[in-house]
Design a protein around this nucleic acid. Structure first.
Lengths: 224, 224
DNA sequence: CCTACCGATCGGTAGG
DNA sequence: CCTACCGATCGGTAGG
């Protein structure tokens, strides 16, 4: 009288697909409406189901928010970080990560540009698990930038007296400045400036200009 | 039988003070709760009055949001821009504006750091008058940075081939990167990096290092 | 995963 | 500028 194995698997598979569909919409919605504006009814409306369909997969709004953060983080790993790691270690990899990030924003992979950046500003004044997790992901990101910078210095591709924390800050700041401005004012100048700025800085620190191709080849749209 | 002149003036004065008190709280609240989270009841609660007290001064939430934007803009003019304009035209004035902005964030003049930056990210996905006005104020700010950069070049304090748009972008990006990060992670490194980064860049463009004092003298707390 | 419903809060109005 | 109230929407629960 128990459900057949095939039945269970079929349901699991369908359930996972639904879960993924919910999170895809949740991440996109949160980049424009915010994590607070990610309401159960609005999300359900976009999926054309009832609120209870969402609550069947996530027990509360906070659980949904936390799952959305993980989902957004994985998207960045898959579409921004992993392609950049295909570049050779050193200044080329740092440069590839910067270009990959800008391309992610520029092709509007998410309507609001960047889930984490938007959440960062929204969560400033709101304690809780979501805020804490956002802070962790942000720290992870800046740590990655710093690590790649240190590698480039260690390989001798940047001057030995380069301050890795400073350079990582500059690369991150240039990227951050490309999230909101172009979407708010329609000006695409920031993308151009963010590339020129970081390239100038890398060359100023002794990087071989031949290693810094621009624009980047469009990152391959792999099947996820 | 009409109200006496003194009575009218007294009421006007009291009304203006109330209006200012409402907007002070509204601006501070919006930097942590967002313009959407700036609800009539929460704001009234902070002022220890009823919602109708707020609605007596602003006919709708949108009117309140728009007035808060103007109030925040004026605060920036008074506390960030005007003190910087006391510096001599040229690279010193650009540097003073950058330092003045960072000091404004660092002394937590507003709990969320910056009204405009927070509003910028929040308004990405929401059409309306508030979003349009935020976009205008942002454009005004970047225009100011660019104008000061152009003056410094025209005065010969920066290399003649300096790209003013690029430099203005870099200065703005460094400042923007100091709004959320320190508040989210407790790391004050960004403030230090934002100063070093811009100073290095200015010197790299030919600025006389002697003109770039750091840290800035704390901006005088003038009576408003 | 649906309908029906709960108390709380939203922006806003009416009457005084 | 107060109380009292309006319909809409919020997160979440109950029952099926």
């Amino acid at each position: 009288m128990t459900t057949t194995r095939a039945g269970v698997d079929g349901r699991r598979l369908r359930g996972d697909r639904t879960r993924t569909a919910i999170l895809d919409h949740a991440v996109a919605l949160a980049t424009t409406a915010g994590l607070e504006g990610l309401t159960l009814s609005r999300l359900a409306g976009r999926l054309d189901v009832g609120k209870s369909a969402v609550l069947a997969h996530f027990p509360s709004k906070e659980a949904l928010q936390l799952a959305a953060i993980e989902h957004a983080r994985h998207q960045v790993v898959r579409e921004v970080v992993r392609p950049a790691l295909a570049a050779p270690r050193g200044v080329r990899r740092l440069w590839a990560l910067h270009l990959s990030r800008l391309a992610f924003y520029e092709r509007a992979a998410l309507p609001g540009g960047c889930f984490i950046a938007t959440a960062e500003f929204e969560m400033l004044g709101r304690p809780g698990a979501a805020r804490d997790r956002v802070a962790e992901v942000v720290t992870e990101w800046t740590g990655l930038l710093r690590g790649l910078t240190e590698q480039a210095v260690a390989l001798g591709e940047l001057a030995a007296d380069t301050d890795p924390g400073l350079l990582a800050f500059e690369v991150d700041a240039a990227g951050l400045a490309c999230v909101a401005r172009p979407r708010l004012t329609g000006d695409h100048g920031p993308y151009v400036h963010a590339r020129r700025s970081v390239r100038d800085r890398l060359v100023g620190l002794g990087a071989d200009p031949a290693l810094l191709t621009d624009p980047a080849p469009a990152p391959a749209r792999e099947p996820s």
